[in-house]
Design a protein around this nucleic acid. Structure first.
Ligand code: ZN
Ligand code: ZN
Ligand code: ZN
Ligand code: ZN
Lengths: 164, 164
DNA sequence: GGCAATGTGTTATGTAATAACATAATTGCT
DNA sequence: AGCAATTATGTTATTACATAACACATTGCC
């Protein structure tokens, strides 16, 4: 469930979304898919539901294990759903954790196309904060090298306010 | 050996270091370790040698497979060496590729402590370019959130000049 | 030499992700 | 409705990536 930790403080600040808020995000996601002619199917919805349930990045195999009330899902079911949700911009993959987190750019109902994002990842409580940043320096370096950037991974690891 | 590709051009621009240049980098690495009271042992040297041999990120299991002339090394041997080399700032882990690349910040013999770096990673030929960037925006965002950053991963994926 | 600290060898296991192919649901067309 | 094409899912098996645990060896110091 939660990541183990050696610190002495608790991690209550890593609060979960309540079920009403999750339901709202799910139907919003469904609308977003339909608006783009994509299908929000049951396994995709279930996968998103499980990721929305945590405010921290979730491992693929945690989704797999919790997928059914009685038993685990098969890995391809979940990995395919994860790929779809990422393409739709509903979740982000966190490369340095091999995990997935719900996009926080849809918070107020606005449609956000797939986008680059930066993350502040707490090594103690596991919490994730998505922040919007522009990257003029790396763009400039890329341009100087004749490099065509397709996507950027930017992840800061450290300690959140509550854990420092 | 090299990564497979569907493009029609060749990847000769992904040239390797010649053996003399590798030897120079290895002895330089050895001096750097000794200067810090660390031991550059045989498996560590061999691991670094194999990584220096490519100008592209190398998979851990590629190192494992090539470690001995006759057979493969055991995974812990190589993973331990990789951890050491990374701590010494001699290699960097590329999170989005699960691979390792030699640090390019030691090129002219200057000692470079473990440092953050950004990478331009070509999805076609697999080449990697290490670039130095400062990150004022993410530092600012982190400060605003009370987040204490320990280390940053910044990887741009795309197409290098030769492959676009 | 005796000891502590560090590094390595070895076996086994744990964790993450995909290939390949069969079946099912959906969509668009007639 | 009937049909074909497309898209999605189910299923089995395999591949790729990484570490735990413990025994043994080496190094440096007293
Ligand atoms: Zn987002
Ligand atoms: Zn925290
Ligand atoms: Zn470097
Ligand atoms: Zn290239």
């Amino acid at each position: 469930m939660s990541m183990s930790h050696a610190c002495d403080h608790d991690h209550d600040h890593a609060h979960h979304l309540d079920s009403g808020r999750i339901a709202a995000r799910l139907s919003e996601a469904q609308r977003l898919c339909e608006a783009q002619g994509e299908r929000m199917t049951a396994p995709r919805l279930r996968t998103l539901e499980l990721i929305l349930g945590e405010n921290a990045p979730v491992k693929a195999y945690d989704v797999i294990d919790r997928f059914h009330p009685d038993g685990a899902a098969k890995p391809p079911t979940v990995y395919r759903a994860l790929a779809f949700l990422e393409q739709m911009g509903l979740i982000h993959r966190i490369e340095s954790l091999n995990a997935f987190v719900a996009c926080q750019g849809h918070a107020d109902g606005q449609v956000v196309q797939p986008h680059a994002a930066a993350f502040l990842l707490c090594d103690c409580c596991g919490s994730s904060e998505e922040v919007a940043v522009s990257l003029p320096e790396i763009d400039q370096q890329a341009a100087a090298s004749g490099f065509e950037t397709r996507r950027v991974t930017l992840e800061a690891r450290g300690l959140c306010k509550a854990c420092r």
